[in-house]
Every structure is written in C-alpha cells, then in structure tokens.
Amino acid sequence: MAHGAEESGWKNRDVIDILGFTKNELLDLFEETDKFVEQGSDFGEPLRHKIVATAFFEPSTRTRLSFSSAALRLGAKVIDLSAEVSSLMKGESFADTIRMLEAYSDLIVVRHPSEGAALFASEISSKPVVNGGDGSQHHPTQAMLDLYTVNKLKGGVDGLTYALVGDIKYARTATSFLYALTKFNPRRVYAVCPEALRPRAEVLKRLEGLGLRVELGLELEDIIGELDVVYATRIQKERFPDQSEYEKVKGSYRLARTVMEKAKRECIILHPLPRVEELPYELDSTPHAAYFKQAAWGVPLRMALLKLILGG
C-alpha cells in the first residue's frame, strides 16, 4: 500500500474508534476510496460471497444506508436487524444478538446508544465489528469520511484551521473528528459552543495527551476569517439528561449567512447530517457547502473499508 501500511493489517479488522488507526492507514483508505470515486460503477463484485449485517439499535439514515449501499455495490448481501421487530422486543440481550449475527454474517455494523457497545460486541464476535456509533463516544467511519472530504477538497488535512461548531459534548461525530485530527497536524482547532456543550473533560484531557490543543471560548464571528474548515453539528437533543438544558441551548450557534460571508471563499462547511436549525438551507448554494459531497462519499469510503476488511 502506498503509504506504508500493511494491507494484511486490514484483514478482518474491527473498527471501534479512529484512534486505532495510523495516519498512513487512513491515507491508504483514502486512496482506495479515490479509486471507487473515479471508477463510478461496475466494481466487479469482489465481495459476492460475503454477508454484511447491519444492527442499528438507534435511528440512522446515512450510516446504515451507505453501508448497505457499499456492500451491495461490491456484490455482498446485506441482512438488517430491525430492533423494533426483533427478539430485542422480547428482551433478548445485546450480547446474544451479536452472537446470532456472528453466526449469520461475515461482518457486523453496529450502532448502539451505550458507550462501549461496539467494543463489547467485538469481544464477543469472531467476525469483524464496525462501530456505526456508540452513545456519545465514537463514530470512526464518520471521522474517516470527514477527513477524506477535507483531504479531497483541500488537498490535505495538515496545516489547516478548523472550527467545530455546536454540540461538541454529546455529538460523537465531533468527538471522533477531534480524535481523528490528532493523527495529523492541524494549524489551529477551535470549539465554538455554549459552555454546556464543550468537549467532555476526559476528551479534552485525552486530546491534550495526544498533542491536540482545542481552543475554547471564542465566538465564530471572531475567527471566521481564518477558518479553512467549519464542522457544524446538530444539538443532540436525545442525549441531554435534562431536556430543560436542551431548551436553553437549542438554536444556538446557527451558521448565519451573514457570518459565512466573512469567511474565506475556500472555507468549506462540513456537517455529518441530519441538520435541524444550525445549518440554514440558504448556505446550500454557496461555495462553502461541502456536506452533500461529504454524505455522497460515504458510500465509496465504506466500500473501500469493507473491501479492505473482507476482501482479498
């Protein structure tokens, strides 16, 4: 592989968090993704004898469907566990469900509201487990996609100035993106958010230990002119222990067009989607909007990931 990572290191690998990957492995993944982006169609069904299981214990649109689409495009079959109609409704444990999926498939994509669920699943299953999001902790494939988008549109990840805007406490995509940046050398990283939605203390401590300093307490208007990447997030209503706290901060940190007009023309906006109020439709037609490309590249990136893990 071009960046020195060993291809054999991907075979049957669990994908639990982004920190488990080296910079070279990520660059190799991006290179594989580029091939699928350029190829467009007719991928030759390299996974035609494989079965991918999707087990989402929380709602999902993009992650579940892009994994399904990626698997189908590579010729794999997809089986989907629907939590609402499965034995989970009869009280089956998560562990027993994973054991069943291990027997029925070659790879399990799992999303669960509990932090650590994907790691636990990987301890149970001999088949590779890919974390599609565990509570407010990790979403590694989203972080891979976010980095890929930056790399593709900006010609690299290093040396850029980033601002994460909105909910950096509960949004696992934001936490994973920060962890992902530790693999590279960003110029500056800001977290623009209300005090109640700042990164969790243990996350900041871990980032600091990994050499990434996150600057807090600034308003977007004060820094917009120096930003290369704005990473917007939805306020995670479903993760607030106290809904009155959500009411206090909802609607804050909306990316107003008047603010984005002060940004560099090349500044891109990423958003893991879905959006609510934080990302107005009027930005969709600006050169800053990169979030639909980001979402679309979710399929080729996950194709590359599945091929590296299951292929060969």
């Binding site: 669960h112 509201p113 932090e115 650590g116 636990f120 565990d134 407010s136 222990p241």
Partner: peptide, 14 residues
C-alpha cells in the same frame, strides 16, 4: 459512573 456505559446494562455479560 457513566449511566449510559455498556458495563452498566442489566443482563449483559460484560
């Protein structure tokens, strides 16, 4: 102490 950690789930062998 995290109420949503997988290790706090009842009936899970973790």
């Amino acid at each position: 102490v995290n109420p949503t950690c997988i290790t706090g789930k009842q009936r899970e062998p973790v």
